[in-house]
């Protein structure tokens, strides 16, 4: 409950922030909404010496539509995403997911960028943004680079972010055509992180068959994964209940699942299938009604 000593910085620009991070390297960490890092610091699970707070850096919050993308600033809180009219209208699954992260207090401080950079294997955003095919914008002293969400997370609490880089933006392409998305998780009874969370974005063709889909699963493995078997099984199919059930049954394919207090690997694979089926049904319904 009492952190080790550290130096605190609240730089006013991204450039200053990355300069500080560059200077202190592995001894420094950037903090956004505090909801992942501060708990680790007070349990002394993180031994950083320099804390770089982005709160005074302008331009890192907010949600806008621009050039076919919904652009979410890295420091935008989960709450802000959950109540954004733009997000609710264009990317309802994102609003849904945001509104169920942690609890109300956590959502008021926790940010999308912070959550992604923390890369908890049970977090919601990686699945949702994988299904939505998001791109992350990363700033460093050398400028900006973009990384596809699928390339961003390397493993539990590990991403491609270098010590002197900051995740500044999440860019979600606005889906076109008859699309619909949904996200659902079975939360851990204590932590409320996802035991299994499934996100799906479905695109239907004019005839109502599945044109394409992106389905991602969080919670089961060491990092978010694409449910390619499910996607393949749906491809070109009429998304009736039987087809969805058959496809959803493959949700955990290829994921190495470990037994734990929540249940056996088999149980969790089953959960993935059950939740996937529900998520697919909701995504299809949204696509059909669009």
């Amino acid at each position: 409950m009492y952190a080790s000593e550290f130096e605190y910085y609240a730089p006013g620009t991204v450039a200053e922030a990355v300069a500080l991070l560059g200077k202190y390297g592995d001894d420094a960490k950037v903090v956004s909404g505090s909801q992942s890092l501060v708990p680790m610091m007070k349990l002394r699970l993180s031994s950083l010496k320099h804390l770089v707070d982005l709160r005074k850096v302008p331009g890192l919050t907010g949600i806008t539509e621009s050039g076919g993308f919904v652009v979410v600033g890295g420091m935008t809180t989960h709450h802000a995403v959950s109540v954004s009219e733009l997000v609710k209208k264009k990317l309802p699954m994102m609003a849904e997911a945001a509104g169920n992260i942690g609890d109300a207090q956590v959502r008021n401080l926790g940010t999308i960028g912070g959550s992604l950079a923390h890369a908890d294997p049970s977090a919601d955003w990686p699945a949702v943004l994988t299904a939505l095919d998001a791109t992350l914008v990363i700033a460093s002293a050398g400028g900006e680079r973009s990384v596809k969400i699928g390339d961003f997370i390397l493993g539990p609490l590990t991403t491609v972010l270098q010590p002197a880089e900051i995740l500044t933006q999440v860019r979600v392409p606005l889906p076109q055509g008859r699309y619909g998305g949904a996200y659902q998780k079975l939360p851990h009874p204590a932590s409320r992180f996802a035991v299994v969370g499934v996100a799906a974005e479905m695109f239907l063709d004019a005839g109502g068959a599945v044109q394409s889909s992106r389905i991602a699963i969080t919670g089961l493995g060491p990092k978010v994964s694409r449910a390619s078997s499910v996607e393949q099984a749906l491809q070109g199919k009429k998304p009736d209940a039987a087809a969805l059930k058959a496809a959803a049954a493959k949700a955990a394919d290829g994921i190495e699942i470990r037994d734990d207090l929540i249940g056996s690997a088999a149980y969790k694979a089953n959960l993935a299938a059950v939740i996937a089926e529900r998520v697919l049904a909701r995504a299809v319904a949204r696509a059909t009604n669009r």
Binding site: P189, I262, G263, S264, A266, Y267, K268, L271
Partner: peptide, 11 residues
């Protein structure tokens, strides 16, 4: 009687 235990029993 957690979901995991019940599901296991029903398996």
């Amino acid at each position: 009687l957690t979901p995991g235990r019940i599901w296991e029993a029903l398996r």
